[in-house]
Amino acid sequence: MHQKLFYIDIKSLKRGDKKVYESVYFEFFDVLYHLALQYLRREDIAKEVVQDAFVKLWENKGAIENNSNIKNLLYTITKNNCLNHLRNEKVVAKYLDNIRHLELQFQYDALSKLSDDAIIFEELQEKLNAAIEKLPEKIKQVFIMSRFQELKYREIADKLSISQKTVESRMSKALAFLRKDLKEYLPFYILLSEFLN
């Protein structure tokens, strides 16, 4: 993945120029939205959270420095908005549904472990892409169908005429390989060499 150059006219941004906000909005909306959607799992709330991030950027435009990284700002605000949302949802779930509460806690912990820096976040994404490319062909195929094409395990099994157990097992292997490859970026404690061999 090559880095796209995206120029932001900070002075116009500080002035509140509509054109600049529009270009920033269109440039960053999708990646922020998908970040929020992955962790919040609800489209309406993810949209709301990202919308709110842009509103916060607008409200704080006076404090933006000439060398501020706008993408980083938006990324951090979105991440924090998501964390806040998960925290609130957790409070509700605590009294209603224990499993749901634990799930939300799990999401919350994972998101809070993500880098606060959009640059590192992007770097990680690039490394991940490279690692996916290196996966053994059959494993890669299943992983891509699941994560990129959003197919259910059942659907993948049907398409490839293999059992759902095999899909599960290949996905587990994919996760193990990827994690090994990205161990500097993601928490990695238990050695899996035995399993991988």
Binding site: A110, L128, F148
Partner: peptide, 27 residues
């Protein structure tokens, strides 16, 4: 185990975000 699971979860989410650079949302 928790740390490990969190790592895998992030990997899981990121691999998805990575390839979702557009959406059918009316921006």
């Amino acid at each position: 185990f928790k740390e490990e699971s969190i790592g895998i979860q992030n990997l899981w989410h990121l691999s998805h975000i990575q390839n979702k650079q557009s959406s059918d949302i009316d921006k």
